[in-house]
């Protein structure tokens, strides 16, 4: 099992090596990375991708896992400052309480880049932040569906994320914006699946029963791939074909949704890229090379994947990343 994983990691690495512009500008730089922890597959993938990108660019990455605690992150950042690193990447576990330690970094003239999440506080405490746009992710998914169904009437059921969480709110908003001008598309049912497979499956079962065994449903939109994977199983259990009888569109682009695409059971996913470090390194390199201050908010690409985008290849590339 270990061997397979290592092989897959190698494949993933190769993929990234191909996909990223080769650069020598960061060779020999020492960069500290304070990661939140490994609470989700995506987080684990972000860690491994960051390590890979660093290795590829010749960066000496100092990695610190904070195990969900801000105090650990602050300790790690102080450690990085004491070691005299060239730059610091932080995926902040909470939004507040950063001013003191980031001021220390600023006084030591060490640029700080925030990954994935923002903080509250003066913007001059960090060089830039790299994050995805959750509303845009929802919009991309919605636009794909609009383009796919054309003029046909399409009843959509929605599997929301955890009630009140920001991805659930934003991804719902973006999707609704995208289908707003199209009267033939409407969301007929929307429930929370708590971002989990088993709840996704259970809620989809309920939707299918309530909508004439699924006959009234044209598409399911899930706020993450895990719920979509659960929904696909529910659709199959109901005797329907996911991917054709009911379209499946979701967000995240984790490996399992690509294997569903290979089987023809999923139609589209929008990537929440785990590669936050790539744009961060680009910004640092530009800053060091030219002295140019990057934009404060770098938005990662929300790339759409469909079965036309070599799902098997995407699956293999991602499998080893820790999702």
């Amino acid at each position: 099992m270990k061997v397979i994983k290592t092989l897959a990691l190698g494949a993933g690495l190769a993929g990234l090596l191909l996909s990223t512009a080769h650069a020598e500008g960061l060779q020999g730089k020492v960069i500290g990375f304070s990661q939140i922890g490994s609470e989700s597959g995506w987080r684990a993938a972000e860690t491994s991708v960051t390590k890979q990108v660093a290795a590829e660019r010749g960066v000496d990455l100092k990695f610190a896992d904070a195990q969900q605690k801000q105090e650990n992150q602050i300790k790690a950042i102080r450690g990085f400052i004491a070691q005299g690193v060239d730059a610091i990447l932080v995926a902040p576990v909470v939004a507040t309480g950063w001013e003191e330690v980031l001021t220390e970094a600023k006084e030591a003239s060490i640029p700080v880049v925030l990954l994935d999440r923002g903080i509250e506080g003066p913007e001059d405490l960090y060089l830039t932040s790299v994050a995805s746009d959750q509303v845009k992710e929802g919009r991309v998914a919605g636009e794909w569906l609009v383009g796919t169904v054309g003029d046909q009437t399409c009843n959509i059921v929605e599997l929301q994320g955890t009630v009140g969480s920001s991805p659930a709110i934003n991804r719902k908003q973006g999707f609704e914006e995208a289908i707003a001008g199209h009267a033939n598309l409407s969301i007929i049912r929307s429930q929370t699946g708590d971002f989990t497979r088993s709840k996704g499956k259970e809620v989809m079962e309920g939707f299918l029963k309530a909508e004439g065994g699924g006959a009234n449903i044209c598409a399911v939109y899930a706020h993450n791939d895990d719920m979509a994977v659960g929904a696909i199983q529910a659709i199959k259990d109901a005797g329907l074909k996911p991917g054709s009888d009911i379209l499946v569109v979701s967000i995240d682009a984790v490996p399992d949704i690509f294997s569903a695409m290979v089987a023809g059971e999923a139609n589209a996913t929008v990537e929440l890229t785990p590669n936050m470090a790539g744009p961060a390194f680009d910004a640092l390199q530009a800053y060091w090379d030219t002295g140019a201050e990057p934009e404060k908010f770098i938005i990662t690409e929300s790339k759409l994947y469909t079965p036309a985008d070599d799902p098997q290849g995407e699956y293999d590339r991602r499998k080893g990343l820790g999702y």
Binding site: S198, D226, Q233
Partner: peptide, 13 residues
Amino acid sequence: VAGDIRGADANNA
């Protein structure tokens, strides 16, 4: 629960 989703989800099971 694992058999139902064909996977073991340590975070959420």
